[in-house]
């Protein structure tokens, strides 16, 4: 490592900024978890460090290692993340919507409710549903 080039310090500075911002994304997610009122809004905060934060941190790793062959692996790690995050977010969100973790007073519009009501009405006609209140 020759410390004479200015390029080196520039790369160092950029990766330092990336790392600090990436860590700040995690903090943002934690603040969101604590401050948002219901499950669904918290989900939005939770996906954040996993997409942008990880991107910034992996870019910082790539910049620090200064070899080209790490970039494909880093890209791969990020793409795996991109493919899995929406799926788990959707699964949790869907379960959250169905189990009435949703606070309807926080919604300005709900265009799914009518559809769900219709489907639920069809279901209750077929089988008598017990009143299973949400106790979790």
């Amino acid at each position: 490592m020759t410390p004479d080039t200015t390029l080196d310090t520039v790369i160092d500075a950029v990766s330092a900024v990336f790392m600090v911002v990436g860590a700040a994304m995690s903090l943002g997610a934690a603040i969101g978890l604590l401050r948002f009122p219901d499950l669904m809004s918290r989900m939005h905060a939770a996906t954040k460090p996993q997409v942008l934060g990880l991107f910034l941190l992996l870019a910082a790793v790539g910049l620090q290692l200064r070899t080209w062959w790490v970039w494909p692996v880093l890209l791969l790690a990020w793409i795996f993340q991109l493919l899995t995050v929406p799926v788990s977010a959707h699964m949790v969100g869907r379960a959250g919507y169905r189990t009435k973790h949703l606070h309807r007073e926080l919604l300005s519009t709900d265009e799914l409710e009518a559809v769900v009501q219709k489907a639920a009405a069809k279901d209750t006609a077929a089988s008598d549903a017990e009143d299973d209140d949400d106790s979790a």
Binding site: G22, S26, A29, A30, A46, P49, G53, L54, L57, T99
Partner: peptide, 20 residues
């Protein structure tokens, strides 16, 4: 579900620490 979500975020934070 709130707890699962928070655990997920905790894991993401762990991953971030490993990256750093």
């Amino acid at each position: 579900l709130d707890r699962v979500l928070a655990a997920d975020v905790l894991l993401a934070i762990l991953g971030a620490a490993l990256c750093i």
